[in-house]
Design a protein around this nucleic acid. Sequence first.
DNA 1: TACTTCCTCTAACAATTGTTAGAGAGGGCT
DNA 2: AGCCCTCTCTAACAATTGTTAGAGGAAGTA
Lengths: 200, 200
Amino acid sequence: MTTKEKIMDVALHMFSERGYEAVSIRDICGEVGIKESTLYYHFKNKKDILDSLTAKFREHINGLLCDVDEILDEPLTDAEDFIGTKMMDKYMVESYLFEPFCNLMIRLMMIEQFHNEEIRELYEKTMFTDPYEIQMGIFMRLAKLGAFSEEDAKWIVRDYHAYMNMLTYKYLLNGELTEERKQGYMREVHEYMQRVMSRG
Amino acid sequence: MTTKEKIMDVALHMFSERGYEAVSIRDICGEVGIKESTLYYHFKNKKDILDSLTAKFREHINGLLCDVDEILDEPLTDAEDFIGTKMMDKYMVESYLFEPFCNLMIRLMMIEQFHNEEIRELYEKTMFTDPYEIQMGIFMRLAKLGAFSEEDAKWIVRDYHAYMNMLTYKYLLNGELTEERKQGYMREVHEYMQRVMSRG
DNA sequence: TACTTCCTCTAACAATTGTTAGAGAGGGCT
DNA sequence: AGCCCTCTCTAACAATTGTTAGAGGAAGTA
């Protein structure tokens, strides 16, 4: 890992735990093992570190969105398998909510959304707007398979989306990122999904 | 309004918008129109201001909880009127979420939950644990009136709770506290409630 | 009048913050 | 050898932070 990468790594860990303002340049440098002026060789600002992190996150997200779009374009198949395995588990959980870098970025955004307009927008997009749109796409597919009417689907998506937010808050917010928590999260998601499918 | 009250008022407005750390003693004093040393006559610390605010909030909340408990002990009556009017509108909305002081305190807690353990607990209690318990009480009453089974009620409460959290986030988080927003919030709550009642 | 209590002021304090100028060390190129 | 580029260091800077000592004025009481 280069010095620059090390700085970003340490900064992300600290920012996501204490918040951007509460972490000083000296905190970061102390942990990395460099002097402050060295940091300023790699980044022009304190804010530049944060910007580099959000830029990296944006790239990661864009990659994920492309993958998801491809999957949603695949021909229709058995409903439950489609939702349960491919979409939620692989992408939403493995590659996003519980993927180490994204996980820390989400925590960071949760904190900084109140202090930083740009981050508020990014958080809104990546945690609300985008997932909602994807979930809408999924449930419309399910409606086409005859699980429920398209009109019902719209309400079901809203309920589902609200419930996922609650779970995300519950499992992501505080505490370490353990395999246990991930399993607990996935179990609750599946449980909810089953209830939805038997409701329509 | 005494100087002490003025300090708390200004501090709450500033804290709830920018966060505790981002507001300096000088910011508060400048707005109130006093010198820093005067503030330290009324409060021993910067943190003492925050503590006084949370103490005041705790008292307010305790009063509300007593009122709600009394209502939940009243004999059963027509379901829809009970829920729609008395409980949600009067207490949850008028005396809590959209009551000026509580509204700012909630915003403050939303921000500070990440920087302050005590506030995290208070936020968890007043926005999740307590409301969930109250909502459970309400839906159990509705179940007794025959709207749905007690087993179904447990799931319905979870869905309802998740949905309310989403609405609260949507309507409380950013922007001013206008009558319009309040009406919008109440409309969505009623809309959801009607859906629930026609679902069981 | 003299004394006390309540409240506010002036003026500073030490600590921490983000940031910078400038020097030096090491490696590769001519 | 001499030169340049990349990276790191020492050592400071100005600004802002929370906080305090001590003086002064106004009001009420003796």
